[in-house]
Design a protein around this nucleic acid. Sequence first.
RNA 1: GCGGAUGUGGCGAAAUUGGCAUACGCGCUAGACUUAGGAUCUAGUGGUUUACCGUGCAGGUUCAACUCCUGUCAUCCGCACCA
Length: 808
Amino acid sequence: MDMQKIEKKWQKKWQEIDLAKIDRSKLDKKMYILEMFSYPSGSKLHVGHWYNYGPTDSYARFKKMQGYEVFQPMGFDAFGLPAENYAIKTQIHPKDSTEQNIDTMHKQLQKIGAIFDWDAEVITCREDYYKWTQWLFLQLYKNGLAYRKEAPVNWCPSCHTVLANEQVQQGGCERCGTTVVKKNLTQWFFKITDYAEQLLIGLDRLDWPEKTKLMQKNWIGKSTGAQVQFRCESGDILDIFTTRIDTIFGVSYIALAPEHPLVQKLTARDIQRNVEHYIDQTATMNEIERLSTTKEKTGIFIGHYALHPLTGKKIPIFIADYVLNSYGTGAVMGVPAHDERDFLFAKRFHLPIQPVIYNESDALPYTEYGKLINSKQFNGLMAEVAQEQILNYLEKRNLGYKKVNYRLRDWLISRQRYWGAPIPILYCPACGIVPVPENDLPVTLPYAVEFKPDGKSPLAKSKEFMHTTCPQCGKPATREVDTLDTFVCSSWYFLRYPDSQNREKPFDSEIINQFLPVDKYVGGAEHACMHLLYARFITKVLYDLKYINFDEPFTSLVHQGLILGPDGNKMSKSLGNVVSPDTFIDQYGADIFRLYLMFGFSYTDGGAWNDDGLKSIAKFLDRIERLITKFLQEEKSKQKNFDITSAEKELLYMQNNAIEQVTKDLEAFSFNTAIARLMEYLNTLQKYDALQRKNYQLLRQSIEKFILLLAPATPHFSEEVWEMLGHNRSIFLEKYPICDKNALIREEVEYALQINSKIKCKLMIASKWRQEEIAEYVQTNTEVLAYTENKPIKKIIIVPNKLINIIL
RNA sequence: GCGGAUGUGGCGAAAUUGGCAUACGCGCUAGACUUAGGAUCUAGUGGUUUACCGUGCAGGUUCAACUCCUGUCAUCCGCACCA
């Protein structure tokens, strides 16, 4: 079959009949199926995109045939760092290269033959979209969920530019190799931490992979403990957070994050230089290095003491890089006897290691709970009880309180870059921070801008952009020069699709409430903690602001696996193992490529690419075509034969078995097993076709059922053979077959017979027999008696339709 | 390092609640058809050889373990400015 030809033919037909369009009057049976949109990179559509979009489109078509109004939109996440870097290298403007890439990818996406509703398309770098991204920012700002604070960025002192983590290679700048340092800038944040608890609780209701929910749970990182005040000799108060308040009598030092605001003030004069040196050193390290538990503990005594809130003892204050300013209060109490890291730290700096929890073996550190010792009036209490009582004691004296802490940090959304949505904020010398009025949106990203890195945000160098007037007082004001993190763009795009042409609003609430939440969201597992959490956060905010009536964006989520290069490594230009879909599409066509992706891998696992698999799929489609061609010839010439014998019963069994299994497998995104069942069914069809005496009516019906089952997986091919079979209406307007359970009833079932759990033989047992009848049967059956050798039977275990285990 | 996952024939992979390990396919072997075969069809295909051994490795629970538990090794993904 000429695949290229039929692809064009059917794609044109689908467009003519608006196959991808949803009937908006029938949204009560809607199915919003969404694949994560793609980034329009220069490397174009790759196998990973195909793997995401091809099989998911098959799922969408399957749902369509089941009678759902399927909405499957597609778009582009078009702002971001790569286009800007490409521009710096080539002088090609990010807008131009991005639009060019989108153009190419459109054509490539077209080839898949998916039922994408292109009228709903969303492109995040276009004004009509980022206008509403800016609107979203303003809603958060107005509701106290966007704020500014100082935060460190990676800074290359030689290029005078901010670097993404990705651009830092072994602590150096990827361009010039200069050691990267941390530099504080005032930046915008979204207060996602306000939603930490809701984001945690909401997970329970979601049909998401358990591992993803677990990862989000750990990412949010809820821990319950206590915040305790240590008064410094200077009089300053140091707040520390601990989950082990029961061990407070074992404190032998306090460790501050080197970035802690009190460090400068508390550091003793004579060691100031050493402390500064240590702080500088820490600024060159990333968090992964700092938190490594195998790295030797480092720190430095700052020459100041705090007083123990319960004993009044002097406690030395250190700074240590293993303490992060972003978690808790940026200060911890060191209890060496009962914490791994504190133990190593204390050994290194010869600090006292005082056990306060009893343990039999004396081995330290002992991190379990137990009975308190060396803890004054709390001695003898079990740790859990002691926690409450110590907390009570501290609360009464205003020295501490119970505290729930989250590992989740607020979302830093400022980027000192050009290719993003400008943050809609003005700075007025008189009025201060002024949000851009909604009527003035969008704040347009200027085209002619110097984006080469020279220490200034690119937008700061555009006079026309920078200078404006304050909407409140009318005096000159300047604009915020940072742009929004692209994760902001992608945190709400699924809300725009159903109403993407709306010029008045980001979306019409009534429409959006009908379409959403997304019924099936499909994308990579690498988004588990960031994109998927941000999208949930924004949804919850818009819910609280009453723009939408649902508070979770994605009811059901599936992660496709990663397709690796033929060598088993992740595809990358540097390894030269990138497989381009295009050459295979040209050779085999889109359906064979898609079907291979569905059959050759476990969908959620992915795996290494292999060319041979494609050939086998091509053969599979050839077999189908041959079967149908032969059938059509014979059907015309041969007499029809209507009786149903055992061969027909077997055919009907396999047909309905295939219907049942394929339906179940597609539902579960288990594409490889669905195709396997279809292959089995095709084998049965061929076996039946080889018989002399055939029931042509039944054979036609069986072949048609087969094609209907196959259609979602090979849409163009199936349309073509469907037409060959004499139909003149798209197969996707037909109903997906429904299993006739009666055809699956068999009179006898094969059981495995085990003696002492070892398989001995197979037995055919009437399927209507009860357990007692089976037990009686095996005890009198001569074949079974030969195995039991007259030994007494202790027990018979019968697993229905599976096995019989006789224990001697 | 922390968090999450994965490990099954020569290869891609299957295996409801613990219940016949290796479905389906590739590859390979033999045969048929053919002027020809990298096409098609048929049969076989985990390993030693008649009874065992086999799901990364070492233990454990159970009548029964790929599946549950403990430990361990290897690989992959994420770690907050790649998206």
